[in-house]
Design a protein around this nucleic acid. Structure first.
Lengths: 130, 130, 130, 130
DNA sequence: GTGGTCTAGACCACA
DNA sequence: GTGGTCTAGACCACG
């Protein structure tokens, strides 16, 4: 699980970390119960401030993607009760679909693109276990 | 074309304006050649500063969604040559799809959601009313 | 001598007119003594305001590229005494050359480009008379 | 790297800043990876508003001449893939060459002028001092 | 401390 | 009247 950080983008670093870990969970690269590196390790490996790494972990915990352990580690966990998709995600999705449409793609093109992205995003999760 | 601005979010106002206009173009509510309100009108209607409205228009122009006419006004214009969808949009899309998967939805659920959003987003453009 | 106006650019319309006429003179398409269309004709042909066309003509006259006639026409004329190239043009030239260098071109590439542009810009003037 | 601003011209201040930094990069006075002063420093040194300085930096970033680093600062960066020279620069160049021709210079004079300007503009970059 | 955002009010070039 | 520019001063997210 290697993080690819882009320091030139407008997306905050802590957000990039959080996003990539979420995608890792979706793909199945990070499995429930798995332990994440410590904030110190993560920070020194990525060349970022400890506060930044900490903020990313805070966010993940708050969202229910991870949970702390009594002895101090951070572990991936299955979120529960999150069955109603966050409306902000829906709105973001709606916007990005609109951007593709405006960019000249047809509805069909966009749908097949979504299908491919979905296959990519959830490959191991749905595939290796069947 | 009414804009819904949220002043409590971290998303800049000018970005919200830009996003909603892009969605308006995708939906077909704003048609190529149509004139947008002046920055002053928009600013006073939304209760924001002229510079904020101006910034939104500059963004749209720079992205090729609109075109300024020196003789006065800002007009929606057809995108051209943007056949390769911006990779940053793809990445954003990938992330949001992953979020839904992690949130507990199945691939099929996500796909039908996308389909519904697409129908919504491009309703008038593809002629569901014709 | 057809004018190509771009209403979407940041360059003022009157400036575009002036620029293209100057280039026409350089090329030899417009010869000293030749009569320019009236501001009214020009304005209606280009779909612009008379004031705009008038401003362009004013500028040309002021710079010595044209002169008025007692009976009311506007005629191309040779500028005199303008032998010291305007420093602002030199500065603009310096900037544009720098932009090409920064864009990745070598000094030689830029020079051959200049040579080609010069041949193009002064084709009839130096060519048809030899 | 001292900036010379002219507050009496119609050229926007932020554009003047941008132009001079581009020329600095072309000359090699500003090298890839070098850090630019902060917007605040630049603003106070030049006696201008922070937003004006900020706008210049945004322009440079957007054009790919510089790169922001979320960890602080703005840095000069190597242009990439900009192999096709911008047509608007070519057009501007064509115009300025035409102006010199109309001003009475011969093709040869213009070419030697370009050569001198090029030597000036890219002096350090091509190693006249090595 | 760094850049990004916003406001209120003003001036100017252009058409 | 239209958009573009600038100022002075303020607040905020990020690191």
């Amino acid at each position: 699980m290697l993080l690819q950080l882009d320091f030139s983008t407008t997306t905050p670093i802590y957000q990039q970390i959080r996003d990539q870990i979420v995608q890792g969970i979706a793909k199945g690269e990070l499995k429930p119960g798995e332990r994440l590196p410590t904030v110190r390790t993560l920070a020194s490996e990525c060349g970022i401030n400890i506060m930044t790494a900490s903020k990313a972990y805070q966010l993940l915990k708050q969202e229910g993607h991870t949970r702390g352990d009594r002895r101090g580690g951070t572990f991936v966990c299955k979120p529960e009760g999150d069955l109603s998709p966050d409306s902000s995600i829906i709105e973001a999705l709606r916007l990005h679909l609109a951007e593709l449409i405006v960019g000249g793609m047809s509805n069909e093109d966009v749908l097949t693109l979504c299908k491919h992205l979905l296959d990519d995003v959830s490959s191991q999760k749905n595939g290796s276990l069947l």
